[in-house]
Simulated scan of single mutants.
Amino acid sequence: MSRTESVQAAGGGSTAPVLSPSELVGLSLGTRVVTYDETDAILYALAVGAAAEDTDYTYERGLRVLPTFALPLGLWTADAASAAGAFVPAEALHGAQYLSLRSPLPAAGQLSISGSIAAVWDTGRSALIDVLAECEEFSAIYSIILPGKGGFGGERKPRRTPVVAETDMDVTTEFDTNPSQAALYRLTGDRHAIHIDPVAARAAGFDRPILHGLCTLGVAAREVASASDRRPDELRELSARFVSPVKPGDRLATTCRTSAADAGSVAKFVVSVVERNVLADCFATFVR
């Protein structure tokens, strides 16, 4: 089974009755073997803005795989959670993303990825479902917001904020997304119509198709690595909250502050378009 077929096999809609929070925690979503090759890894790198001359990530000879490629590989778990009755897609938002790398992703291979509902949190106004994708190489949490579904007496999710020295300087980089960026990124597996179809985008309340949040995050991870004087493949941990949408063609400004840490560095960052934040409460850690 190819990587794209594995992602699509989860389906795009909920086919089971929506479950209560108490029924969701610990729910297994199964295990899938996800296969990819060098072409998939290179396509992903190009889709998140790598240039042709970034041959560490765009040339099969000595190919390094961007760590954030793990996110589309594990995305089937969110679709599987919906199909199992965790939420109705039309009533849900991708609120935040977390990624932890245990080892570098191989240039090509088969990953046995297991999915589960790790936790359900109560913000008061909304419910927050943490969908976990896990394998030997990485773990990822897709945090799904259900507006208006809070107030059930659950716990509020704690925030983790790494310490970055106040004496360190802020560094800002800019990246111009391509008008065709969403059309390219959707080939990595997320074929949702709002990223390509103007009619679907307008029905969802947007004036035109929007960029995938995970694409914005993939771009930001590369920009933060550059600002922190690290290679993108040295990323070991990444966390971000999705605040507002990006349109293909927007200019992304990534502002980060980096401190040295044991055997690496940690960066806190925010991504904005003009004066509007699109990613907030972000951090990344890198190893040497």
Rank of each mutant, 00 (worst) to 15 (best):
A16V: 00
S239D: 05
P162Q: 09
S272Y: 00
V266L: 01
L27Y: 14
T188Q: 06
R3I: 09
S139P: 00
L217R: 04
A78Q: 15
V243F: 05
V131T: 15
F87W: 03
R251W: 00
Q110P: 07
P158I: 13
G153Q: 04
S20K: 12
G26S: 12
A221V: 10
R64K: 12
A50V: 02
Y59F: 15
S22E: 13
V270K: 06
V273L: 00
E174F: 01
Y36N: 07
S6F: 05
R208A: 12
I194F: 11
A133F: 13
A45G: 07
A240M: 14
D40P: 10
Y142H: 15
L46Q: 01
A51N: 02
A280W: 01
G213T: 11
A16D: 02
Y142M: 10
V270L: 02
F175H: 14
Y59I: 08
L105I: 09
M169R: 08
T255M: 00
S180K: 10
G30R: 15
L101V: 03
V219G: 06
P198F: 12
I196C: 02
D207Q: 09
P198C: 06
T258Q: 02
L132D: 14
E91V: 11
Q97P: 04
C135Q: 02
K247D: 01
L111D: 02
D197W: 13
S100K: 15
T68W: 09
C282G: 05
T77M: 08
R102Q: 01
E136V: 05
Y142R: 01
A9M: 13
A83S: 12
Y36D: 04
F283Q: 02
L93E: 06
L187Y: 14
G85L: 07
G264Q: 02
A107M: 07
R160E: 08
D37P: 05
L105S: 01
P89L: 07
V224R: 01
A84M: 08
I144F: 08
G151A: 04
A227L: 02
V25I: 13
L71Y: 11
R222C: 09
K149H: 15
G154M: 13
I144G: 03
A201L: 13
F69V: 05
L132H: 15
I42N: 04
T258G: 01
V224P: 09
R159H: 07
L63T: 09
A193F: 14
A108C: 03
